[in-house]
Write a protein that binds this DNA or RNA. Structure first.
Lengths: 334, 334
DNA sequence: GTGAAAGCGCTAACAT
DNA sequence: ATGTTAGCGCTTTCAC
């Protein structure tokens, strides 16, 4: 049993409400009483129970981040961005990992309708549909903000990067380096971000007179071994691949592994480029050309939006923030 | 206003208590009533408010992880391990980042005495003392478990790796490769893990007849630029350094950067080895020899211990789990 | 088998 | 300026 407001009241022979008001520095309470209360509270090391008051005013000062995984530099940096504003606002952060399971994501969201948190920031898992009913319903109950991986058709705030343009630019970069047989490594299920990236890729191919773009898109499994296998097969095929774009960080790493395994030299035999926030991209063999998303800033923007919503200062249904990503050219595409 | 138990009771013309019992599948309630209640609850999509009941039984089903940062493979993997058991137990995970600030860590812990969480898993920040009073007091109020970076003198559970032995082995490995002028890159403040690692390092030097071990220990700043600067100065000094041990992941990356900048070839001029969980160590130029900690398993072990403590099945004051780390030899020390 | 009532810690409307 | 009271959503005696 921790120290409660009631204990302080009893010790000081005051009413609970008086103590409550004193602690909240209400103007109705005399300075002398406040002083006494504060002092005693400090002496007893009183810490208010956050969930008691929360029952009344329906606010927990907790927010949730729902995401596929933490062992990914984009997500861990986004968490940092979110945390930076949450800490500043005195909010607490709950983290939920879906491990790319739609079912798990849905049951987590279902649970979150309970009032455990005041709002939610989410980057959806593979397999979640653009018009997911679960997400839409949640957005009715609580402030919900998508970042990076979104459900386009759910009417709530989204924080994104310019995936289409960045991918178009990246593809153009490869073409300018002489690549013609470029492969776009896609994720298995339709992720909003990879959809955009694929579109940008296809558009760039078309604009540069490369036909049959679809032939250049390769679906990779969520399973690491399968995916690695797929990539190796592609690299070994007759129509010699001379460029690879990894649509997500994991695929970049697998491409490197696959090239090593196939005895292909990067960038001589094949140029490689990936969407990735790996800080050590520059230390890889060879240094990897990356499209870097402003992960920290995206987290920060998403959290800022959430707090605005909690303060009823914004209508989330119409919010949409697009931040630019940056192409870092390195040896892997030289 | 979400759906409450009261609403269900009113709709069904039952008492709140009856509904409450029915939902908890109490034997005092008739099957028929239970059926009605469950059905109606499902129809209204009732989700119980977790903090209402929590007020009574003083349990939130929330646990906290307090750690220096997420953008570190050790920590993100540890989070995965913790999350895996928390999800299985139906618990929720709150994440607190200290960013290596003792003050921040202390104020977070202070806040956590409020009852926001049922227990805490922590890896302490740089600068926290072995006998930190704040940590000791918290351990009185709540189940507290240290993992990796601990306060030795605070009497509560600890989950560790065999840092001394692993470092001894790693140092011996470098010596066996012909290194004599080996540098141990230490963190600025006394971290339990780097203390152990340094001791193992010094013991190995002594055992192999290398005198004045202390001369081989270099303190690195928390500031990245300063630290990089220090490393470069060391690499350039007259007594040619032929081996480097990074005591934490960040220092390994900085060593690579520094070697590039100084035009030193790894492993020809200098062999490098680091305590690191980087998955892509094998893809670096050259592949980095690492001492890998079982991060996931440590998180899992720590969380498992916490849940045992919550079930009053263990006395945390005497618990101490030591898991082995593994030396992965790669080209950087060949 | 069902219901009434008290209470968890705190806030807020309403006395005094 | 301080106190009384009711109530947030739920659980848990204790009656009926």
């Amino acid at each position: 049993m921790g120290i409660t407001i009631r204990k302080i009241a009893k010790d000081l022979k005051l009413a609970v409400s008086t103590v409550s008001k004193a602690l909240r520095d209400s103007h109705e309470i005399s300075d002398e009483t406040k002083r006494l209360v504060f002092e005693h509270a400090r002496k007893l090391q009183y810490v208010p129970n956050p969930y008691a008051g929360s029952l009344k005013n329906r606010t927990t000062r907790n927010i949730a981040i729902v995401l596929p995984e933490v062992a990914d530099t984009f997500f861990s940096n986004a968490i940092n961005g979110i945390d930076s504003v949450a800490q500043a606002k005195g909010y607490h952060v709950m983290v939920y990992l879906t491990h790319e399971s739609r079912e798990r994501e849905e049951s987590i969201l279902e649970e979150l309708r309970s009032g455990r948190v005041d709002g939610i920031l989410i980057s959806v898992s593979v397999g979640v549909k653009r018009d997911s009913a679960v997400h839409a319903r949640l957005a009715q109950d609580l402030p919900l903000i998508f970042f990076d991986r979104v459900c386009d058709e759910v009417a709530t705030a989204k924080v994104l990067t310019d995936d289409f343009e960045a991918s178009y630019k990246a593809t153009t970069h490869l073409i300018s380096k002489g690549c013609r047989e470029i492969i776009f490594l896609d994720t298995a299920a339709g992720l909003s971000i990879t959809d955009q990236r694929r579109s940008g890729f296809l558009k760039a191919l078309a604009d540069h007179g490369i036909k049959n773009g679809d032939r250049h898109v390769v679906q990779c499994s969520e399973d690491e071994n399968e995916s690695l296998d797929t990539i190796q097969k592609v690299l070994r095929r007759k129509n010699k691949v001379d460029g690879v774009i990894g649509s997500v960080e994991k695929l970049a790493i697998q491409t490197y592994t696959a090239c090593h395994a196939c005895g292909l030299s990067i960038p001589r035999d094949v140029k490689v480029l990936a969407f990735s926030n790996l800080q050590i991209a520059a230390l890889l063999a060879p240094p990897l050309t990356t499209v870097v998303q402003p992960a920290f800033e995206m987290g920060k923007a998403a959290a800022t939006l959430l707090f605005k919503a909690l303060a009823r200062k914004v209508d989330l249904r119409t919010e949409r923030i697009v931040l630019p990503s940056v192409l870092h050219e390195r040896e892997s595409t030289q």
